[in-house]
Amino acid sequence: MKTPRNVSKKRLLQLLALFLALTPLGLLTSNPAWGEWGLDYFKEKLGFVPKGIKSSSELVNAPFKDYRVFNSNLLSQVFSALIAIALIWAFFKLFLMFRRKKIFSNKNFTKNENSIN
């Protein structure tokens, strides 16, 4: 694993911004993924909906189902990604903070001193 030294975080932000700008392209197709169909697909193909699929199709009520945050698809796509970016960063940040409190080894201590700059 490489450990960066003089690195440019600006470049990573540019990469994130590029992908954020690309996310609306995901809306260009209305084709579902293979195996991620609605109930009517099974009805049409098989003449019935398998019991297990029918009974658990509404098992979880996701707050932003199908990446819909607002009424606008385009904004929803971008905001879904922003929510994910924030959560991912927060998870790893908290992971580091939590870990540092638990094992305050010499190694971590010197690392912390370095990273103040």
Binding site: M1, L15, F19, A81, F92
Partner: peptide
């Protein structure tokens, strides 16, 4: 995991999330 990996790890993880939103017909 070290503090100096945070930016890169968060970035590539978020990139995976966004790559999975880019549906290719």
């Amino acid at each position: 995991f070290q503090e100096e990996n945070l930016a890169l790890l968060s970035t590539v993880t978020a990139l995976s999330f966004m790559a999975m939103m880019l549906n290719i017909p």
